[in-house]
């Protein structure tokens, strides 16, 4: 099996910001790569370079076996791109949007028209086909945008944050579509800030931060990299958290995190059930009451926290504040 996307040492600098600082990527044909990272990590820049929209300052790339820098127009024939915000023309109807894209892929008028109808049907947009796209909901626009990327049945598909800003229903819809495409043999590179999304859709995950790849592997491999299970508990009385930490810390294999607001305590452990029962005994002896307790496998959130020292985007604002204070 050959590789559909290969990037070596991609560097992109803007005036005083280094957006990409030597990114290497390999995506085997027919697989799904999740490019994961917080805002500003370099995800979109990577996609823009691989889709010929942007020239890197250094490095090289091949998509579907074609050199991106040397033969951009040949690459464009083999890719589909669906951007961060839906690039649909809001004054055109759904049908007109897709027909236009088909014509610009040089499918010919008839073929472009037939393909537009086909895609509208498979994306459940038939009823809205002849309405201007500005009357569409956010989810419908995204689907139309993705349909636009699929007009020429491209073997390689780039999806830049395909579900950002969608409601839960729209998000699951989009996931279904992507999974169907992947099953059909399309190579997909998708960027996301949602660990859950990468976990669900991607065969392999590349984590980037500050323009560098900081980890890669399957979801399981990444989780293993961060260590075993997590002991997670919620105490009844937040004032007892400090004491709980004192008695439990010797049982762990890593630094615990304490969230006073949620009255929660999380700690990497390696012993499994024995550790859990020992923890319960100790807490009982201290008469620390619990609302919840359990062992869980690490999530990608834990992976991200462990790799970058920062939580994912949910906590980004807090993070910015604390890192600002540190400086």
């Amino acid at each position: 099996m050959t590789d559909a996307i290969v990037a070596r040492g991609l560097v992109k600098k803007y005036k005083d910001v280094t957006a990409l600082d030597g990114v290497d990527l390999v995506v085997p044909t027919g697989s799904v790569l999740g490019l994961l990272g917080p805002n500003g990590a370099g995800k979109t820049t990577t996609v823009r370079i691989l889709t010929t929209l942007l020239r890197p300052d250094a490095g090289s790339a091949e998509v579907a076996g074609v050199d991106v820098l040397a033969r951009p127009s040949a690459v464009r024939r083999k890719i589909g791109l669906s951007g961060q915000y839906a690039a649909v023309d809001e004054y055109l109807t759904g049908y007109e949007n897709l027909e236009m894209v088909g014509r610009l892929y040089h499918l010919g008028r008839k073929r472009a028209q037939a393909r537009a109808r086909e895609l509208l049907a498979s994306f459940r947009l038939e009823d809205a086909a002849d309405r201007p796209a500005r009357t569409y909901s956010g989810g419908m626009r995204r689907r139309l945008d993705l349909a636009g990327a699929l007009v020429a049945d491209p073997p390689v598909l780039f999806l830049d944050e395909p579900t950002t800003g969608l409601d839960p229903r729209g998000r699951t819809d989009m996931w279904d579509v992507i999974q169907t495409l992947a099953k059909g043999g399309t190579t997909v590179m998708l960027t996301t800030q949602y660990l859950e999304e990468a976990d669900l859709l991607a065969d392999e995950i590349v984590v980037i931060d500050h323009g560098r790849v900081i980890a890669q592997g399957t979801s399981d491999e990444l989780k293993r990299q961060v260590g075993g299970e997590r002991l997670e508990l919620v105490v009844q009385d937040a004032t007892r958290l400090a004491r709980a930490r004192e008695v439990l810390e010797p049982l762990g294999v890593g630094t615990p995190t304490v969230d006073e607001g949620r009255r929660a305590f999380v700690m990497p452990v390696s012993g499994g059930p024995e550790v859990l029962s020992e923890a319960l005994r100790r807490l009982e002896a201290e008469q620390i009451g619990l609302d919840d307790v359990g062992l869980r496998r690490p999530t990608l959130d834990d992976v991200f926290l462990a790799l970058t020292g920062r939580a994912t985007q949910e906590d980004e604002n807090d993070q910015l504040e604390t890192s600002g204070a540190r400086r």
Binding site: T51, L53, L81, G83, Q84, Y85, A86, A87, L104, H106
Partner: peptide, 13 residues
């Protein structure tokens, strides 16, 4: 601004 130019630029037109 609306990303339409990006779409055009990613097409083999």
């Amino acid at each position: 601004k609306k990303g339409i130019i990006d779409r055009f630029r990613s097409l083999p037109m």
